[in-house]
């Protein structure tokens, strides 16, 4: 198993001793920052930033219309293999729980997952793998669609972290736009390794 390596103990001790051997003047830890920018219309700001980072945004006004609206999206219409873990939405034809090896997800066209909340300042959505057996699905799917409830939008990252607790094991991430790269002459190309598109849908 993962028994520690022979060198570990000594290295650990010597590093810590070395650091402690030099007494440094105390520097106070400032209180958490809370002067973050606010926006009059959080979703409008979110939409603007999301589109600037290559994502698409859609807001659905009434609860009953969500499924119908999504069904008409080109990214949904054109996808063959779909996974969906958003309650009450039945777009999935691949059950992640039935897949044992995430490598078998290589053919996934579209993943539809719940996002916990959106962040206006940077167009990001917080997503965890709670409802997703294979977190790889977030990255290996050709297209990603995140569904966020309309009340769940904060102004800035400071508010975002107020909502987050990391008490136990877990995995979560901010996703802002689709996978992209500018590594060839700074030209932005959408769809590097991960999803070629990201759609964020705000629902009642």
């Amino acid at each position: 198993m993962s028994a520690s390596l022979p060198a570990d103990k000594n290295a650990r001790q010597s590093i810590l001793e070395r650091i402690r051997s030099r007494e440094l003047p105390p520097r106070e830890l400032p209180p958490l920052f809370d002067e973050g920018i606010r926006y009059a219309d959080r979703w409008a700001q979110f939409q603007e930033v999301l589109s600037s980072v290559g994502g698409q945004f859609l807001s659905v006004a009434d609860r009953d219309g969500v499924a119908a609206t999504l069904a008409k999206l080109p990214v949904v219409e054109s996808s063959r293999c779909r996974a969906c873990t958003v309650p009450d939405l039945h777009f999935g034809n691949l059950d992640l729980n039935a897949v044992d090896d995430p490598r078998d997800l290589a053919g996934l066209d579209l993943a539809i997952f719940p996002g916990q909340f959106a962040v206006s300042e940077n167009g990001a959505v917080w997503v965890t793998d709670e409802s997703i057996r294979h977190r790889a699905a977030l990255f290996i799917a050709q297209h990603l669609l995140l569904v966020v409830r309309q009340p769940d939008c904060v102004d800035n990252m400071h508010q975002a972290y107020q909502r987050l607790a990391f008490g136990e094991r877990g995995y979560g991430l901010f996703i802002s736009g689709p996978s992209k790269t500018a590594d060839i002459e700074q030209s932005l190309v959408i769809g590097a390794h991960g999803p070629r598109s990201l759609t964020v849908v705000a629902v009642p």
Partner: peptide, 12 residues
């Protein structure tokens, strides 16, 4: 960029 596309938090 306002934030990188992916900012992943690994706990365990």
């Amino acid at each position: 960029q306002p934030i990188t596309s992916y900012s992943s938090h690994f706990h365990g």
